[in-house]
Write a protein that binds this DNA or RNA. Structure first.
Lengths: 202, 202
DNA sequence: GTCAAAGCGGACCCTGGGTCCGGATTCTAC
DNA sequence: GTAGAATCCGGACCCAGGGTCCGCTTTGAC
């Protein structure tokens, strides 16, 4: 499985497409008025190239999303506290959720685009499963918690891209307020005393 | 605004379309391979008729969904306990969520189709707002609960159609188990003693 | 029975994702 | 350096499916 590396122009074009797509999604309010042809044009590349590199629209979105997510994921899977695995579960669960929320806040349009690209159930996506597994494992270490699988799903559901978009976008809930609300909610689920006061997480 | 009632043939056709669509969505695993043309054909009606009656695809889906939802909604807004407004909040919140979950379980394909129809944010849909308002009002009556608006969203997020589809469909979690898990989760959020033992709801 | 309004339906249009293939590039072997 | 093959490029092309249009039919009020 030498998996010979791609040609130089292929790599360059792939990068150009990612950059262009990123910019386009950031610029347009709704993902569905960024067309594959638009992306190709913006990247100065033919449509064929774009489909060759990413397979299809969901594929492109996924690639973009995962590239952006990578550092966060790495921090969560092997980084230092409060995200990394050495953190005590009661601190780590809220930290993980906060990280996911922040990521979605920083990449609202992209996350939305991915969800709306109709790439089958989001629950089969690799990145979702990773978060779920991580979260579930942390939950399992907290005594007295049952149904950790479902609980992990339910907690993650509170960070769904369209909900975030609705709250942050339409309702104009400020970022820090949203984070606090999620933290509060999470604490409730874990049965901890909720962080009522301004828990300095700015 | 006499809003004169529609002609008889119009009413009949509208009904035929709803029935046909319902049957088609039930029969097909994925909503997206039920085409508008399919529905028209199955209803024995022209495409024009179908679009005249419902405007567009999301419109049709919404009409179907709301027709199905109507009785549940009525029960929740003005019915007897445990769903109706006379119920004590601590009982009513779980009851509302259970009702929503059951509805989605009974109408999985339809709910999925609606979500996937790309009719803008689901959070602006009338039916969603109704549930949210109801739930929030109930939550507000429980002392010591903050962020009721967010909490209502987060709880409802746990009943999202695609999550339900994933759990009930792919993972084959049995209906009663799912209901129990949601009930348990809800209890946790409310800070109640969770219904640990087999709370006979099978 | 008559007439206008409402509705019907299927041919048609158009957008946008996805394919194809002749020609240009890059890489490898000599 | 160069020949040849493998890979890639790109834009013309295809097609499914949502949505429109308009001449004809049905309905119902008088």
């Amino acid at each position: 499985m030498p998996e010979r590396k791609p040609r130089k122009d292929a790599a360059r074009n792939r990068e150009a497409v990612l950059v262009a797509a990123d910019a386009l999604f950031a610029r347009h309010a709704s993902p569905e008025d960024v067309t594959m042809a638009d992306i190709a044009a913006a990247a100065g590349v033919g449509k064929g190239t774009l489909f060759r590199a990413f397979g299809d629209r969901p594929g492109l979105l996924r690639a973009l999303y995962e590239a952006r997510l990578e550092p966060v994921r790495a921090a969560a899977e092997a980084g230092p506290p409060p995200l990394g695995p050495t953190t005590a579960p009661r601190q780590r669960v809220p930290a993980l959720l906060d990280a996911v929320l922040c990521f979605k806040l920083d990449n609202r349009r992209l996350a939305l685009a991915l969800e709306e690209s109709g790439s089958g159930s989001p629950y089969q996506a690799e990145h979702y499963e990773r978060w779920h597994t991580l979260l579930r494992a942390a939950l399992e270490q907290i005594p007295g918690l049952a149904d950790t699988g479902f609980t992990a799903h339910a907690l993650l559901a509170a960070t769904r891209a369209d909900l975030v978009e609705h709250l942050a976008g339409q309702e104009r809930v400020p970022r820090e307020r949203l984070r606090a609300q999620l933290a509060h909610f999470t604490a409730g689920v874990l049965g901890l005393d909720p962080p009522q006061e301004a828990t300095a997480q700015d």
